[in-house]
């Protein structure tokens, strides 16, 4: 009994390779690979979020080991492991015992590998070689350009592309009917408008909507987007832009101390929100913000107190907001935002 069963993304995560939506080319190649021989090369999955990378890795694990897949698979998320040393230790420990089942190797899935520094990736490369006779790595990344060349050259690369509209909508319809939720075609369009080819976002949006209303209409969808967008962070940015530092700081503290979001993560989401256009900011201001954000990112890793660093960042946003007259329009929350 787990909570994850209540979360539709997890409940409806395909467990077999063939059930994965779209990505036909990737699926064919992977099936060939698995048939091929005893030791396929390491693999690198890359592509935007919500396109099936992690699902594919887990499906491969099931394919290789059947019910014993958990014992033979080590799942790591680079953003959660404290540095390369802990990754090394966990890999070492895991590789100590022999695999069970038909595959002669154990599987290591390393998610968000592109969040690792290049030094850490160098160490990872050595690890991949050291345990090459007993393990296979599946690395997962959003941006392949952030993976160092020596690792790329050691991996079979698989590119996952954003899912096509019909595939996403078809899946949403299926889930809605299995959950007994009424959803109009226009509402599904609205979901697509928000999620585009990101299946995870699409399903989460649908579920958030289902939690607010019995019948899902486009209005319901737009009303609930706030919950799966980092709305708190958009609020935080707008408050800082508007010059209300004390209020912005309170919001920052809620995020840090009550919701447990790390300072680095807050900074990066702020950066992403501003650069992606989720908040209306002129290009000159974006350049200034990028500069400050990069500086603060560095100070966060060097310094010792995240709240001090983030406060300094908010104060700079406040200055930039003043300079460009941002954050003054309180109704900056028009529902039909495109992304």
């Amino acid at each position: 009994m787990s909570i994850a069963e209540l979360i539709w993304v997890e409940k409806y995560r395909p467990s077999r390779i063939d059930d994965i939506i779209d990505q036909e080319e990737v699926k064919e190649r992977i099936k060939q690979f698995l048939k091929m021989g005893n030791m396929p090369p390491h693999m690198l999955f890359y592509g935007p979020p919500g396109t099936g990378k992690t699902t594919m890795a887990l499906a491969i694990a099931r394919e290789l080991y059947g019910d014993a897949w958990r014992e033979n698979t080590l799942e790591l998320n680079a953003s959660d492991e404290r540095g390369i040393t802990t990754i090394r230790e966990r890999v070492k420990e895991f590789a100590r015992t022999a695999p069970m089942g038909k595959a002669p190797y154990k599987l290591i899935i390393l998610d968000e590998a592109d969040n690792m520094t290049s030094d850490a990736q160098q160490a990872l490369r050595r690890m991949m070689e050291m345990y090459a006779n007993v393990t296979r790595f599946i690395l997962i990344a959003n941006y392949v350009s952030r993976i160092i060349d020596p690792i790329q050259s050691r991996c079979a690369m698989f590119r996952f592309s954003p899912l096509p509209r019909d595939a996403v909508l078809g899946r949403l319809r299926e889930i809605a009917s299995r959950e007994g939720v009424k959803v109009t075609d226009e509402a599904l369009e609205a979901v697509w408008d928000i999620s585009q080819g990101d299946m995870r976002k699409a399903i989460n949006t649908l579920q958030a909507a289902a939690a607010t209303a019995k019948e899902i209409t486009p209005e319901v969808i737009y009303k609930t987007v706030g919950y799966i967008e980092p709305k708190d962070i958009v609020d935080l940015i707008n408050t800082a832009f508007s010059g209300d530092f004390i209020n912005a700081r309170d919001k920052l503290r809620t995020l840090m101390y009550e919701h447990g979001v790390s300072g680095t993560e807050i900074l990066r989401v702020i950066q992403r929100q501003i650069m992606s256009g989720a908040i209306n900011v002129p290009d000159e201001a974006k350049v200034e913000i990028a500069e400050v954000a990069a500086d603060i990112d560095y100070r966060l890793t060097e310094g010792s107190d995240e709240e001090i660093q983030l406060s300094a960042f908010l104060a700079r946003l406040m200055l930039i907001g003043k300079k460009y007259g941002l954050g003054t329009s309180k109704e900056a929350k028009a529902p039909a935002k495109k992304r």
């Binding site: 909570i3 994850a4 997890e10 998320n77 953003s79 989460n204 939690a211 799966i228 979001v261």
Partner: peptide, 26 residues
């Protein structure tokens, strides 16, 4: 949750905790 959902803990706190909060009112 991060183990069960196969995502990082920041993703859980930023995206899934709000979803759970919403579900708790439904």
């Amino acid at each position: 949750l991060r183990t069960e959902l196969h995502v990082s803990s920041s993703e859980v706190s930023l995206y899934y905790m709000p979803l759970l909060r919403l579900m708790a009112t439904s």
